[in-house]
Amino acid sequence: MKRTELQVIERTYWGAVTRKLWHDKMTVVAIGLLLFMIGISLGAARISDTFLGFSPTDTDLRSRAKPPTWADEAWPQFQKFAQTCQRTQCQWSLWPHIITNGLAGVSSCLNDGYGKCHWMGTDQAGRDVFTRGLYGGRISLRIGFYVAGITMTLGVIMGLLSGYYAATWVDDIINAIIQTLSSIPLLFLLIILSRIFSPGPEGLALLLGAFGWMGVSRLIRGQIFSIRERDYIMASRAIGASIWRIMFWHMLPNISSIVIVIGVFNVAGAIISEAGLSYLGVGIGPPLPSWGNMMQGSLGNFTDAPWLVLAPGLFIFLTTLSIYLIGDGLRDALDPWVKN
C-alpha cells in the first residue's frame, strides 16, 4: 500500500504504546499465554470437575507417586533405557517402543480419561498432580500479584520521598533502612519468619513484599534525581503546588514507564521466591497446593518420580516466561525514543 506523504497521525502517548504493543507479535502471544494461565487457575474447579474428575486434596494411598497414566507402559521402558546407559551403552533401540506406547497411552487417555487418567502423574499421597497444579496457580499467581503490589507501593513511595528530599534527613533515614535490610541475609530471615509464624498466602506476600522493595526504591530515587531539577517541576513549585501534588502528579507520571516495567518483572520474581520458600517447606503449607510446595514432595525420591519436579516447574516456567516477555515488550513499547 502506498502511503501519502506528509501524513500526520496524531496519537496520545498511551495510544502509541498500545499500537506498538499490538504490533509486537511476541508480546501479544505472551499476553495470551499469561491470560491462559490466569484463566486455568481461576477455572481450576470447573476444569477439574468437567474434564479431569479429580479433586486437589483427595488422597489415594493405593496410587502413590504413580507416573502419568498415559506413560504407564512407556515409563518402565524409559527406566530400563536409563539403566542401560548407566551400565554400558545406551540402548537406543528401546525408543520406538517408548514413543509408540506413550502415544497409545495418550490416545486412550483422551478417549476415556475422566477420573482415571492422571495427566501428570500422582504425588506421594496419591493426589493428581495436574489438578493440584491448576489449583496451585491460584496461590502462586495471587502471591505474585500481591507481592508486586506491596513492593511497588513501598518502593515508589520511599523512592519518591528519598529522591525529593535528597541529602536531607528523610533521605538519610530511608538509606539507612535500605542499607540495613540489604546487609542481612534476607532469605534466611524470610525462612525463619515464615517458619515461626507460618503465614497464609497473604501473610507470606506481606513478608516477601516488606523485604523486597529496596531495589525499586533505589531505582526510583535515581530516576527522580534526573527529573527533579526540570523546568516543569520548578514551575509547579513556583505556583505553590504541595509536595504530594508534585510527587504524585508531576514526578510519578514522568517515570511511570519504568515503574510499570519493574512492577511486571516483580510479579515473576515473587512467584519464583515463593516457589523457593515453599520448596524448603516454610512457605505455603499443605494441604493448600502451590507450585513450590508441590515440588517439596519430590525431596526424597526425585529420580524415581521426576514428574513431581517437572510438572510444577512447567507451570512456573510458562507463567514467568510470559510475564518476562510482556515486561520486555513493555520496556520497548513504553520508551518513546526507540523507533520501530
Binding site: 523457593g276 520448596y279 516447574g313 518476562y324
Partner: peptide
C-alpha cells in the same frame, strides 16, 4: 534462564 528458579535447573 531467568524465568525458572535456578535451584530448579539444578534439580533437573
Amino acid at each position: 534462564v531467568s524465568t525458572v528458579p535456578d535451584w530448579w535447573i539444578g534439580l533437573l
